[in-house]
Design a binder for these strands. Structure first.
Lengths: 153, 153
DNA sequence: TATTTAATAGAAAATAAAACTATAAATTAG
DNA sequence: CTAATTTATAGTTTTATTTTCTATTAAATA
């Protein structure tokens, strides 16, 4: 695993907030040459510390303004059934995140759709169409208070 | 609100998956000229459909390999107390996401830290240091099955 | 002490973004 | 219905950025 020095960490913080900055801008902020920044970025990409660069969209402007957390319990927990469930859940475009978790339920899904009607549709025709689903429990998002992809290093 | 045509939607999908593609690459995939792509991207940025461009990191490589969902109930729900809680929760670097939600609890926090010890520390010295917190209930992530920032348009 | 390695800087070359000009199709106004 | 305007596009030129190459310095190693 790559050892990160303070400059790497600062660089990663900058890139997490705005990946469209030029190397020149970054070099000014970090007091480095353009080449030094370039080499560091390439190294961080090559080592997999930087996974990818993406555009983040405004959910409201693309008509996806309804979010829910859906807790799911399976009926069977043998490896075969778990693998099958996970393979199916990954395919569902409405599911942005899926975690295998501790506690009362087996999985938590973060689901994003247009509205409640679309959520009902998702539950009835997509989620519960997957075999092996026992119980589900939906929690609806009233307001997004904080949402960042930037990890403090 | 900007009306998106099919080309805009395809462009947004491409940018959500890889924002480092050149306009030339995008123009090939969309069967457009470089200028046409350039103009569309600028329009989408200006209208706020594209919120920002960010680098996504590999959590494991930066020693943040412990995630939990923390459900929080407040003791008081008047506007004054809610605002105060939200203002404090936003400041906490370990909290990547915070949602005001329906159901038994008032908020769900997505918390990312190094390990269980760091989580305990977060709970004891940061979260419960905020006044007005009643109950909390932590759900630990055993495995991340799916995680995308890309919204299907 | 000599040699290698790692990190950096500066210059040059290659590439891409941005700005500009022009054209055609669609929309609007008279 | 026709002229004017707007919108979306393409091609060209200019500007800026990325990438490569060469060189230097400091630290680590033999």
């Amino acid at each position: 695993m790559l050892k990160l020095d303070q400059t790497d960490k600062e660089l990663l913080t900058l890139l997490q907030n705005d990946s469209k900055q030029t190397n020149k801008e970054l070099s000014n902020k970090l007091n480095l040459s353009v080449t030094a920044v370039y080499e560091r970025v390439k190294k961080l990409e090559k080592e997999g510390v930087v996974k990818r660069y993406v555009a983040l969209l405004n959910r409201k402007q693309i008509e996806k303004n309804f979010m829910a957390h859906c807790h799911v319990r399976l009926t069977q927990h043998s490896k075969e059934f778990v693998v099958k469930f996970e393979r199916e859940i990954i395919k569902l475009e409405e599911v942005l995140e899926c975690y295998h978790v501790s506690g009362d339920y087996d999985y938590i899904l973060k689901v994003l759709v247009k509205d409640m009607e679309a959520y009902r549709d998702f539950m009835v025709t997509k989620l519960t169409a997957i075999p092996n689903i026992g119980n589900t429990h939906s929690i609806f998002v009233i307001d997004e208070v904080k949402h960042t992809t930037s990890i403090n290093i």
